[in-house]
Computed example of a mutant assay.
Amino acid sequence: MQVKALTFDTGGTILDWHSGVCSAFQKVGQHHGISLDWHAVTNDYRRLAMKGIVGQVHPTFNMDDVHRTALDEVLTKYGLLQLEAQERWQIFHAWHKLVCWPDFPAALARIRQKLPAISFTMLPVSLVLDVSRKNDLDWDAVISCEMIGVYKPNPQAYLKAAQWLGMEPSEILMVACHNFDLNAARACGFRTAFVRRPDEWGPEGPPDPTPHPDCDVVVDGFSELAKLLGV
Rank of each mutant, 00 (worst) to 15 (best):
V74K: 00
V74P: 05
L75M: 09
L75H: 08
K77Q: 03
K77L: 06
Y78W: 12
Y78Q: 02
Y78A: 05
Y78G: 08
G79Y: 03
G79N: 03
L81I: 13
L81G: 13
L81P: 09
L81Y: 13
Q82F: 14
L83S: 10
E84W: 02
E84M: 04
A85T: 15
E87A: 04
E87W: 06
R88H: 07
W89E: 15
I91Q: 03
F92W: 12
F92T: 00
H93V: 08
W95M: 11
K97M: 12
K97Y: 08
L98E: 00
L98P: 03
V99I: 10
C100L: 05
P102R: 07
P102W: 09
P102H: 11
P102E: 09
P102M: 03
F104W: 00
F104S: 05
P105I: 04
P105W: 00
A106Y: 11
A109F: 12
A109R: 15
A109S: 15
R112M: 05
R112H: 04
K114L: 04
L115W: 02
L115I: 01
P116S: 12
P116Y: 13
I118V: 13
S119V: 00
S119D: 02
F120V: 06
T121P: 02
S126F: 06
S126I: 04
V128D: 04
V128H: 07
L129H: 14
D130K: 04
D130E: 08
K134N: 14
K134G: 10
K134Y: 14
K134S: 13
D136Q: 15
D138W: 15
W139G: 08
D140I: 06
A141L: 14
I143W: 12
C145N: 15
M147S: 15
M147N: 15
G149F: 02
V150M: 11
K152R: 13
K152H: 02
P153T: 06
Q156P: 04
A157P: 00
Y158K: 01
W164T: 10
L165M: 06
L165F: 00
G166M: 10
G166Q: 09
G166W: 07
M167W: 10
M167R: 14
E168A: 11
P169I: 03
E171I: 01
I172P: 02
L173M: 00
L173P: 00
A176P: 01
C177I: 07
C177P: 05
H178E: 10
H178A: 10
L182V: 05
N183P: 01
N183H: 12
R186S: 09
A187S: 11
A187Y: 05
C188L: 06
F190R: 05
A193E: 02
F194Q: 11
V195L: 07
R196G: 14
R197A: 08
P198I: 05
P198T: 01
D199G: 14
E200W: 11
W201G: 11
G202H: 04
G202R: 00
G202P: 07
G202M: 02
E204D: 15
G205H: 01
G205S: 08
P206F: 04
P206W: 05
P209D: 06
P209Y: 04
T210H: 14
T210V: 12
P211Q: 03
H212F: 10
P213V: 08
P213W: 08
D214Q: 14
C215F: 07
D216A: 07
V217F: 09
V218A: 10
V219P: 03
V219I: 02
